[in-house]
Design a protein around this nucleic acid. Structure first.
Lengths: 188, 188
DNA sequence: TATGACATGTAATCTGTTACATGATTAG
DNA sequence: CTAATCATGTAACAGATTACATGTCATA
C-alpha cells in the first residue's frame, strides 16, 4: 500500500468532491480544461481511480437506473475527504515551491469547497510565508549568476523564473486582500 | 531505441555541452541550482547518462591522469549536439506551453551557447507567437469560469495561471528588446 | 446495418523515486 | 584507524504514455 498519492490522484479527488462523476466525465473535464496538465489519457485516469478505490478514498456505484450503460459513478468517501483536506491544509514548504507551483495552485483551487473560506485564507498565508523565504534565496542565486560570466540567455531564463515567483507572491497578496474585503461585506 | 528524450536528458546534454563533466559533478550542479526540478537523485542521473551514451549522444572517457579515481568525464558527441540543437530550435507549440513553461525556458537557457544569438532570438520569437495565440484562449476559458457560479478560489487559481502566461509574454518581449539593443552596440 | 460517439479498460514500455550497496580517498 | 566525503552504481517499485481492445448506444 503506497502512502503517497500523486497529483493526478488529488486532482481526481478534488473534482469528485465537487460533483460525483464517471471516469469518462472526469476524463472530459481534464482534456477540456487546463487540468490537462495532469494527463488526460485513459491509461492514467482509470488505473488512478482503481487505486483510489482500493485505498478506500472513493467508491464507485453502478448507475443502471435510466440508461443501461454500465457507467460507474464515483464519489468521495469520508476517508477520502479527510485525505483531501490534509493535502490542502498542510503548510506550504520550500519543496512545494521548488518542484512546481502548479500543485499548490491546485490545492488552493479546491481549498474553498473542501476547507472553507478560512482554509483557503490559511493556505494563502502559508504560501505567502514560503514565498517570502524563497524569493530572497533566488535573488542571491541570481546575483551569483550575474557575477560569473555566462551566456546571456541563461541569466535571462533564470530571471524569468524569479519573476514568476515574485508574480505568485503578488497574486497571493491580492487574493488575500480580496478575501479580506469580502469579509467586510457578508458574514460566512 | 526510444525516439523521445525526457527533459532530464536534455538538461544533461545542455550542461555537458557547456562543459564536459562527471556524473557526480552533474549531480552537484542539479542539486545546488534550480535545475533540481529535474531530479537530483543518482538513480535518475546515472541511468540517464547510460541511455544517452547508448544512443551515441555523449561519450565518457575515464580520467586517470592525475588522481586514481575511476571518474568518468562525459562529453557531447556531434550527434548529441545536433539533437540538442534540434530540440532547442524547434518551434514552440501550444503543447509546449500547456505541459510546462519550464522546459521552454530550459531550451532558451541553453540556446545561446548551442544555437548562437540568432538561435536564441528565433526561439523567443516563436515563443511570443505561441503565447499570443494561447493567452486569448485562456481568457475565453476564464470568462466561462466567471460566468458559471463556482468557488472563488477556483477562479482565483485560474487567474493566477493566466497571469503567469501573460508575465511570460512580457518577459519574452523584454528579452527580445534586450537582444535588439545589444545588436546596435556590437556585431556578433 | 454500419458508422461514430460513448464508456471502460488492458498491455508493453519507459522513466523516476527510494533505498541500498560498494569502493576509493582524504582529514582528523 | 576511522569517519566523512567522493564517486558510481543497482534493485524494487510506482506511475505515466501509447496503443490497442472491447462493448454499448444512437442515428442515418
Amino acid at each position: 500500500v503506497p502512502t503517497t498519492i500523486p497529483a493526478l490522484g488529488y486532482a481526481l479527488l478534488g473534482l469528485l468532491q465537487q460533483k460525483p462523476s464517471s471516469g469518462y466525465e472526469l476524463r472530459k473535464m481534464f482534456s477540456s480544461t487546463s487540468l490537462r496538465t495532469y494527463s488526460d489519457s485513459p491509461g492514467a485516469i482509470y488505473p488512478a481511480l482503481q487505486r483510489l478505490e482500493k485505498q478506500g478514498l472513493i467508491r464507485g456505484t453502478i448507475e443502471d437506473s435510466s440508461g443501461l450503460r454500465r457507467k460507474q459513478i464515483f464519489h468521495v468517501t469520508s476517508k477520502g475527504l479527510t485525505e483531501l483536506k490534509q493535502w490542502i491544509t498542510r503548510p506550504v514548504t520550500r519543496e512545494d515551491l521548488i518542484w512546481g507551483e502548479s500543485e499548490v495552485l491546485l490545492r488552493f483551487a479546491f481549498s474553498e469547497s473542501v476547507a472553507g473560506r478560512s482554509g483557503a485564507i490559511e493556505l494563502l498565508r502559508s504560501l505567502e510565508i514560503a514565498l517570502n523565504n524563497h524569493v530572497p534565496e533566488l535573488h542571491s542565486e541570481l546575483n551569483q549568476i550575474r557575477s560569473i560570466k555566462g551566456p546571456t540567455s541563461g541569466r535571462l531564463a533564470f530571471e524569468c523564473g524569479v519573476e514568476g515567483y515574485e508574480h505568485l507572491l503578488h497574486w497571493t497578496q491580492r487574493a488575500l486582500a480580496s478575501y479580506e474585503k469580502e469579509r467586510k461585506g457578508a458574514s460566512s
